[in-house]
């Protein structure tokens, strides 16, 4: 499921004084099976961009091809597209509406016109993916905690078995352990289902840990696009866009400045720990 975006422009409220050129000339290719992190300051156009990918927004100009099919063409089958490209919105728990968790997750598959058995299978599978046990099935989604609600909402999209999963700030507003769990589950899901994942976040730490490729948005344009190590070597540019490199990368940079021979592409705590321990061991050996 490759996605090709060419010369995409989008203007909100064209022709009014509130007109806003939210996307300017965006060109991107996302290949099958990639895990892409999208970051950018508030209002940089991240949400606008991803809403184009399942046809919720129509480009002001430009084209988008998903799996070789131009989805901006007239008469494109949007319903089918939305099954293939699952989109989880920012604060998805605000869209829950059914009496029970089970029914809410079943809403997507039901709209696809599946049989009862298939729906049941998919609901159970999706709940399993997000770590909700069977005892939640008949609870009302409104009496769950924020983090649990969010999982129900994510399961609601997963139950459609999309090939591409797009998540807009899936960890926003959760406590550190909630963030951690959601991110770990998304990563596990990515490995298990071999889907393409696009993941919007404000947090460099989260993106650094999960993504194999990072796209940096700035004022409606793609400012940088590359591997995490490439992106984080441009700390100054990132800062000028109101972003920053992960704290652990900053630490590594300060260590390097003091003459410690540390790698310059450290962006996760695990990696930093391993490297520092290795350096310490070398030092000890040298002392002996």
């Amino acid at each position: 499921m490759a996605i090709e975006i060419s010369n995409l422009n989008y203007v909100y409220m064209a022709g009014s004084p509130f007109e806003k050129h939210a996307l300017q000339n965006v060109n991107l290719t996302i290949s099958d099976g990639e895990f892409v992190g999208i970051i950018g300051h508030t209002g940089s156009g991240k949400s606008t961009l991803i809403q184009h990918l399942n046809g919720l927004l129509k480009p002001t100009s430009g084209t988008i091809c998903v799996d070789g099919v131009d989805i901006t063409a007239k008469g494109a089958d949007l319903k089918k597209l939305r099954q293939k490209v699952g989109l989880v919105f920012q604060y998805p728990e605000h869209q829950l509406f059914e009496e029970t968790v089970y029914k809410d997750i079943a809403y997507g598959p039901k709209n696809m016109g599946l049989t009862q058995d298939e729906i049941d299978e998919r609901v159970r599978e999706a709940m399993n993916y997000v770590g909700l046990t069977d005892k939640y099935m008949n609870r009302s989604p409104f009496e769950l905690s924020g983090g649990q609600k969010r999982r129900v909402a994510i399961a609601g999209v997963l139950a459609m078995r999309p090939d591409v999963l797009i998540l807009d700030e899936p960890a926003a507003g959760l406590d550190p352990s909630g963030r951690e769990e959601i991110l770990t589950q998304i990563k596990a899901l990515y490995l298990a289902r071999k889907m393409t994942v696009l993941f919007v976040s404000h947090s460099m730490e989260d993106v650094a840990r999960a993504a194999g490729r990072i796209i940096v948005m700035n004022r409606g344009t793609v400012a940088m696009d590359g591997k995490p190590s490439e992106i984080f070597s441009h700390a100054k540019e990132l800062r000028s866009m109101g972003l920053d490199v992960p704290q652990i990368t900053q630490l590594a940079a300060s260590l390097a400045e003091r003459g410690i021979p540390i790698d310059n592409n450290i962006y996760t705590i695990e990696r930093a720990k391993a490297t520092i321990l290795m350096l310490l061991a070398q030092k000890e050996k040298g002392a002996k």
């Binding site: 809403q51 919720l56 939305r82 099954q83 869209q95 809403y107 997507g108 709209n111 609601g156 459609m160």
Partner: peptide, 8 residues
């Protein structure tokens, strides 16, 4: 939009 994304 969110419900449309779920096939509504």
């Amino acid at each position: 939009k969110a419900q449309k994304a779920r096939g509504a």
